[in-house]
Every structure is written in structure tokens, then in C-alpha cells.
Design a binder for these strands. Sequence first.
DNA 1: GTCTATATGAAGATAGAC
DNA 2: GTCTATCTTCATATAGAC
Lengths: 195, 195
Amino acid sequence: MARTAGSHSDITGPRIRAAALQLFAQRGFAAVSMRQIAGEVGVQAGALYNYTPDKQSLLFDLMQRHMEGLLAEVASRVMGDTPTDRLQSFVRFHIGYHIDRPDEVFIAYMELRSLSPENFARIETQRRRYEDVLEAILQDGVVQGAFSVPDTKIATLGLIAMLNGVNTWYRAGGRLSQTEVEGIYWDMARQAVGA
Amino acid sequence: MARTAGSHSDITGPRIRAAALQLFAQRGFAAVSMRQIAGEVGVQAGALYNYTPDKQSLLFDLMQRHMEGLLAEVASRVMGDTPTDRLQSFVRFHIGYHIDRPDEVFIAYMELRSLSPENFARIETQRRRYEDVLEAILQDGVVQGAFSVPDTKIATLGLIAMLNGVNTWYRAGGRLSQTEVEGIYWDMARQAVGA
DNA sequence: GTCTATATGAAGATAGAC
DNA sequence: GTCTATCTTCATATAGAC
């Protein structure tokens, strides 16, 4: 169907977010213009303002949705009777979730500085809640003598940084399956905490 | 001394790079204007063009200098008779070098997408040379049976990502000394490769 | 080498017609 | 809800005086 003037509120909103997501990830928030986003969607720039009050809110909306999805999923997917089992499920969940959403992840970690101070504070709160999930597992493991970790806070940040690194090289259809990648990172993570 | 019109070629160049470095790291390349850099240095925007042909070259110059310094230093600082010793010296070097240069490191990893294709290719080549230093150590260790690493390429990228994470939280004057931080990351790295 | 002034283009955002 | 047209500001980069 050719694009014509008219009402498309149901589909234009998601299309704007999808276009913004891809463009922000590829070129960076500051380097992308509202006109470019509109062009990708197939509308004029002015039409975007029916969906977002401004460019900053569009970025915040993307990051907020990502963090909420991440927090909801980690809560339902991380489980196990022992700290080691829970750590494994966290590592595998994190790798899988991040592999599936490279653009969201990239933006959430790279465009923090493009947020207004208020929006930054909100996203940071959500991020800390996610880190706390992992740190609680590590603390449990240390208390129970299952892990050897000198500093759970630093280990948390170090592990997450290591896991995030998967998105710098993983591409779907490469030589390794997602499960294989999960297994490799789980091996490294398990050894890193002395489990 | 008040700023006045005149010749200052010896000091203005470094001051421009220092200002650009800080501003690019803080706000991102695309979000920083030549006027802002000039303002930080204390000259007018036009004067910058006596030192760089354009903004892109200024970014490339910063990244190029960083990578060359990194490669020169890693070559002279990483040593040891065994793979484990060499890995330890690499980890401690990497942490120390990165802690000392947060802005350079941040830009080198975050503004790759802001480079022109030709400049990107040059920086990528240097980056790969740095990764190769670590991968050679891991391969040595695997061959000699000192390390347990399922995939040296992924382990290289995973370790570097983990080590780079230090810059997301380390601040000079915090609760841990640089040597303590090096020790913590060395513990994690050593365990991660099964050394 | 730095200044002022400016050429030229593009940015975010809004107004009002349809 | 989208369009066209526009306001206003700011961007990179250059020219020529000092």
C-alpha cells in the first residue's frame, strides 16, 4: 500500500520507535535528526510530534521500555536452588536477551549521557536494580561458600561488562549458535567467581 | 595572563586536543560544537582551523594518538616467563593504563561510529593489534596447558570487555587503590581462564 | 595565529490547512 | 494524523583584516 495522508496512529508509533532505535544505535542520538527518523518511517518531520513531545522524550521512551522489559524478564527467568544454578540462569538469560536486542542494549549503555538529568536518574535506578539481581546471587554464593569473590560489587560490574561484550562481536548466523555462546560465557563466568 | 590576540602555536594545539577530549568524552562527538571547544580553550572558533582541517580530523587525531600510545606501552610493559605471568602483566597494565586515561579510552571505544570509513578502518587495525597481544598470551597458555579456555578469540574479547568495565565505576580517590583494583581484576581474569 | 564577519546549510520545534 | 511552510537557532567552515 502506498503511503498517503491519513490516520495511522496504531502503526506509526511503533514504526517511529523502531526507526529511532536503529538510527540512534547506528549513528548516535545527537547525530540523528528528527527529519531522518521521519524519512525512515515515511512521514514528514512534523508528524513525529504527534507521538513524542520532543526528541529527548523519544530517547527516554526507548530506554525506559528496554529497562522495564529487562527487569520483568530477569525476575521471571532467573531461578535455581543453588547460587551456582541461579548464576548460570542469569548468565544464560543475560547473553540471550542481549543477543536478541543489540540496538536496545547499545543505546541503553551508550546514550546515558544524552539523557536529561532527571531521565538519567530514572534509568540509572532501573539499571542498579538489574545489577542488584546479580550481586544478590554472588553474595549468596559467597555466604554459602560456593563462590570465591574478593568484592561482590566489583565482580558484579566486571561480570556484566564481560557479558555485555558479546554484542561487540556476536552476529546471528555466525559460526556459533546462541546456546554455544551462552555456554562459553557461562564457563568464563563460572571460573571467574570460582564456582 | 589575560588572553590577547597573538601567536600561541605551541600551547594552543595541545589545549585544543585536551578540550576536545574532555568534551567529546562527556557529551559525545556529535553533540559538541567547534564553538564549544574554542570557548573552552579561550579562542574563537575560526582559530581552531589553524590546527585541524576539520572536526573529523580532530577526532581521528585523538583516537590515533591514544591507540599509538597504548600499543607502544603494551609492547614495553607486558612481559614474563610464563603465560600466567604475561597475562598478569597484561591485566595490570591494561587496568592501570585505562584508569589513568578515562576520557581517551571512552572516546576510543564509543566514537568509532563517528569516524569516517577510512579513519575507522585505521583505528580498527590498531585495535586488533592490541587484542592480538592478549590472544597470543591465551594461545600460549592453552598450548602449554596453563589455561583452560574454550575459545581464545571470545575469551580475548570477553576479558578486554571485563577489564574495560573498570572505567564505568573507578574514580581516583575512591575506597580502593589502583593496585588493589588491579589485584581484584587479576583474580577474576586468572580464574576466568582457569590459570 | 587570531580576530570579526559571514556564507551556507541544517537542526528542533510549531502553526494552520486539509 | 499528516501535510506544507516557517520560525529561530545553531552548526561547520571560510575570507580577509590585523
